[in-house]
């Protein structure tokens, strides 16, 4: 790890001011991606701005929405009875992220801002049609995840909370990478007033919606409805653990299991 200046601002505004004034600042919101990267000397920010004291934490369920403060760690979401009652699939997803260390340190805001192609939370955001609330505006999940590690966030914009509309039904099925436990393929499905959503993480360079499956589920929200829907493998990831072809196959299997879970 190279040397850096550590800051722990008390407010988001202060954090943004620090970020603007830093030569090459980075925000820290849990750090389970950034700190190992720094230890590997693959990143050397001049300033590390720890949001631990600035971000809101906590979960609020009201007006048909689950709103989670950006500083809330995965373990709190996983064990929240409010989340379990409103959107059980979201609590389950949080319980499957990483390991106990990651779940107790990593935050929902950090995970979403990082937008790792194999992270779990982006699937929940896209699969539920969440709204990402930032220091400057509100961004719909459909517009937020723009590419591999890319989001619609501006340079000096900080996520403050995430608002998930409560669906009628939802399910998340994840096939973890055998080694890292990141999602090799994870599929989040939901059925709500606004329609059907099928979001796929881990399979491609960025979380994406599976339109064919959504269409098939529109009239019949049952796993049998998507039994014949195949995922094209052309743009999927390929690595030593899973070829694109295998990932495409798993998208189908995980989607059916997620629907079964939602309807079961």
């Amino acid at each position: 790890m190279y040397e850096f200046t550590y800051h722990r601002p008390a407010t988001v505004d202060e954090a943004i001011a620090l970020l603007k004034s830093a030569d090459d600042g980075k925000l820290l919101a849990g750090g389970h991606t950034l700190l190992p990267t720094m230890k590997q000397r693959l990143a050397s920010p001049s300033d590390l701005i720890d949001l631990g004291g600035a971000l809101a934490t906590g979960i609020d369920v009201s007006n048909g929405c689950v709103t989670i403060g950006a500083g809330t760690c995965h373990a709190d979401v996983a064990t929240s009875s409010d989340v379990a009652n409103a959107i059980p699939a979201l609590a389950k997803l949080a319980s499957m992220i990483g390991d106990p260390h990651v779940r107790n340190k990593g935050t929902i805001g950090g995970s979403i801002a990082n937008n790792d192609p194999a992270a779990d939370y982006p699937a929940a955001c896209l699969g539920l049609g969440a709204t990402i609330v930032t220091s400057a505006r509100e961004i719909e999940a459909d517009d937020f995840f723009t590419g591999m590690f890319d989001t619609a966030l501006g340079d000096d914009e900080v996520i403050t909370s995430v608002r998930f509309p409560v669906p009628a039904k939802a399910g998340y099925s994840k096939f973890p990478n055998p080694a890292s436990r990141y999602a090799m393929v994870g599929v989040f499905v939901s059925s709500a007033k606004g329609g059907i959503r099928v979001a796929v993480t881990g399979a491609g360079p960025c979380v994406f919606r599976q339109g064919d499956m959504e269409a098939a589920l529109e009239g019949d929200f049952a796993s049998s409805a998507i039994a014949g829907v195949t995922q094209a493998d052309g743009d999927l990831n390929s690595d030593i653990h899973a070829s694109a072809e295998y990932r495409a196959h798993l998208v189908g299997v995980m989607a059916r299991r997620a629907v079964d879970q939602a309807t079961g």
Binding site: L42, P117, N237, D239
Partner: peptide, 17 residues
Amino acid sequence: GKLAQIGQRLVDGAAKK
């Protein structure tokens, strides 16, 4: 180097990007 040793899963995606 380090890139190859620890970044295997992201080589394709990052390069494509």
